[in-house]
Write a protein that binds this DNA or RNA. Structure first.
Length: 505
RNA sequence: GGCCCGUUCGUCUAGGGGUUAGGACGCAGGAUUUUCAUUCCUGAAACACGGGUUCGAUUCCCGUACGGGCUGCCA
């Protein structure tokens, strides 16, 4: 079998939405599983929607996830250029060929005329019937066509959809799909500005780039019949790629496909990386900045619409490549479930290699102005990893490793603190400070002995120590936390806390 | 409206003519833990509806309902 070639073909109109990342992932997985090629192609044919920085964003996102293109702008490859804006002449040549062979025609209708037609008939469709009424090279006298063409007043080229045909194609996910050609409109192939539309460009480029499989979102299913017609018109039907239309990723509340505004609406990311648009409305927090590990996000995305048929849930990228198959992609739309995504992230944080996590956590802590040594950070990570669902929570739930507690859980203090015992607790603090070795074991031993000597109960002492050191009842193993913080810091915090406790009750 | 696609616990899903319809997230309860978290155990929770086909349909077929996509000189 020929070598598999798959492409991810986003449009650089802004930040890459998470559904696009999943499409890229599935393309990548299929390509890699069969030793094929993963291509990145930038579909920048709409000059009015071009957004500077979007292409760089797309690349950065793919790289963050580890989905490196084998070919693409900046990645090399023998089928370039990989930006459609740089292939403009080709499309013009190919449409000319189509006009020549009678599969396409010039249309001179202005936007206003088209709008008027749609106004008059809400169901207006530029089909065989309308074709005869409108201004185009099929309805106008030859002279008139020549004149309009030479005047250069602007025209488009449309596909001439044949009448009374059933267009059938096989979708790898949905099976056989059929369309009646009479339902299809004469799609614009080449716009007045000389740029191709998606329909033309994707067909021409997929052929020229020798793409063998097209995995894309379900929103393209309806126009696939047009694409099939184009392959036929070009005489490429034998080399037509296999199609697989992915189920859409739906909003959490089940109303429509997930859109970029949903991130803000629901309070979680729907983009891989943060994006700074021109307005706040157009700016988003990404999975990366939200504190996701790329491996976890990939794992989550992979299972959104695909399953391995086993009960395994945790997959590395390599394992996904191994296990993936188009046959096991689902047909129905998939709700985006942030809780499941967070669970994956938590699992990855728990299992991650400490030094790997160190590199991820370091900037989070540094962002708050602290740059402790790696050994301290490693200890911190070990104590906190089971308590952080996102990287940000290393700070949010463990900030007291770096600075004094902001406050002491007042409810707990009132419940457990006995002001008459301040001297007793100060004595304990002194004993701990005087320990030969300030290790978790010895702190524990000394504390337990103290409790026994004074006839106290664990529940009367331990919560006060925890509160004194961390300010909260939620945190890692007390004695290990104390060891990591160190003798002086612990002694200082305890004395201060015991003093404050008296004022809190 | 027209065309196309879809429909198993709240969510992601497995399964498939005869099953106690399985798992995961979330939720509830419990165990472990000096706290929290982790981990473990338990529980509640689903085949959209109506017709066929069949000895038997959640599974196959047809309708209906519901959901989604497309319907641009956007992708």
């Amino acid at each position: 079998m020929e070598k598999m070639r798959l492409r991810f073909a986003p449009s650089p109109t802004g930040a890459l939405h998470i559904g696009g990342v999943r499409t890229a992932l599935y393309n990548y997985l299929l390509a890699k599983k069969h030793g094929g090629t993963f291509i990145l192609r930038i579909e920048d044919t709409d000059q009015t929607r071009y957004v500077p920085g979007a292409e760089a964003y797309i690349k950065e996102a793919l790289e963050w996830f580890g989905l490196l293109p084998d070919e693409g702008p900046g990645y090399g490859g023998a089928h370039g250029p990989y930006r459609q804006s740089e292939r403009k002449e080709r499309y013009q040549e190919y449409t000319a060929q189509l006009v020549e062979s009678g599969h396409a025609y010039y249309a001179f209708d202005t936007s206003d005329e088209l709008a008027a037609a749609r106004e008059k008939d809400p169901n207006f469709k530029y089909d065989a019937g309308a074709r005869r009424q409108m201004k185009n090279s099929l309805s106008l006298p030859e002279e008139e066509v020549k004149r309009l063409l030479s005047e250069g007043g602007g025209h488009v080229i449309r596909l001439k959809v044949p009448e009374n045909e059933t267009i059938v194609f096989q979708d790898k996910i949905r099976g056989q799909v059929a369309f009646d050609s009479n339902e299809l409109d004469d799609k614009v192939l080449l716009k007045a500005d000389g740029m191709p539309t998606y329909h033309l460009a994707n067909v021409v480029d997929d052929r020229l780039m020798e793409v063998t499989h097209v995995i894309r979102g379900e929103e393209w299913l309806s126009s696939t019949a047009h694409h099939v017609l184009l392959y036929r018109a070009f005489g490429w039907e034998g080399q037509m790629p296999a199609f697989a239309h992915l189920p859409l990723i739906l909003r959490p509340d089940g109303k429509g496909k997930l859109s970029k505004r949903d991130g803000a609406r629901f309070g979680f990311p729907v983009f891989p990386l943060s994006w700074q648009g021109e307005t706040e409305e157009d700016s988003f927090t990404g999975f990366r900045e939200y504190g996701f590990l790329p491996e976890a996000a990939i794992n989550f995305l992979a299972l959104l619409g695909w399953n391995p048929g086993t009960e395994q849930e945790i997959f590395s990228l390599e394992e996904l490549v191994e296990a993936f198959s188009v046959e096991r992609i689902n047909k129905s739309g998939t709700r985006f479930d942030i809780d499941k995504a967070k669970w994956f992230n938590q699992q990855y944080i728990i299992k991650a290699d400490t030094d790997y996590l160190l590199e991820k956590v370091k900037p989070v802590i540094a962002a708050h102005g602290y740059e402790p040594g790696d050994d301290f950070l490693r200890g911190f990570i070990e104590l906190m990893r089971e308590r952080a669902v996102t990287l940000g929570e290393f700070w949010e739930n463990g900030y007291f490793f770096f600075e004094e507690p902001r406050d002491y859980d007042p409810k707990m203090v009132r419940k457990r603190w006995d002001s008459g015992r301040k001297a007793l607790f100060d004595e304990l603090a002194g004993q701990l400070e005087g320990l030969d070795n300030f290790t978790a074991d010895s702190i524990k031993a000394r504390t337990e002995a103290f409790i026994q000597e004074k006839g106290l109960k664990f529940g009367e002492v331990l919560p006060m120590l925890r509160l004194g050191v961390a300010g909260t009842m939620q945190g890692p193993a007390l004695f290990e936390m104390m060891e990591l913080l160190g003798r002086a810091e612990v002694a200082r915090r305890l004395r201060k806390a015991f003093h404050q406790f008296n004022e809190l009750i």
